[in-house]
Amino acid sequence: MLNYLWAGMLLVGIAYGAFTGNLAQVSEAALESAGEAVTLCISMVGVMALWTGLMHTARESGLMGQLTRMARPAVRWLFPDIPAGHEAQEHITANVIANILGLGWAATPSGLKAMEALGRLEDSRRREGRSQVPEGAASNEMCNFLILNISSLQLIPVTIIVYRSQYGSVDPTAIIGPAMAATACSTAAGILYMKIRGRRKRT
């Protein structure tokens, strides 16, 4: 899927650029974007290290475990087939909390860890012959976890509010209520979809 999507972006872009005579801009954009990606990564190394350092501290001191226990009912409802106490629960909890607080950079490391843990869970299912997906395919939990992430969980859209006040809004925070309602709608739609599609076939 991502394979075709990415190839499509490049091929369509280049073909359309040739058609409209924008090839010079296209080649400039290609080189520039590659550089921008590296600049972005370098600028986020510090923040990322700060968050992974803090996360590790929270995990080792038992704080993360405590939060995971508190969030367990919700995580169990969303991911009923993850065995109790599995490491994936802790990473999913950390990722969701970071997302709700709007700490994008803090969400990525725990999100990656959650995906790895879910990968190991599916591997162990495969060994026991209980897996329903072949290797290289996303497990139900992976699909559900990403849908949940993409449905947007952020409670207060801080950056947008800052931009609104910078551009002269008389009431920059007026959107908080509607934004929460819209986020609730998108998350509800995502959860509904994953609950319908993500059911494991019982045998």
Binding site: L2, M115, G119, G136, C143, S152
Partner: peptide, 22 residues
């Protein structure tokens, strides 16, 4: 970012669910 990190190629129903939520 997430799927590449775990080398998953078949993303199954993720895109459909994500588009629906969006």
């Amino acid at each position: 970012v997430y799927f590449m990190a775990v080398k998953v190629k078949k993303t199954r129903y993720t895109l459909a669910g994500a588009l629906l939520a969006t």
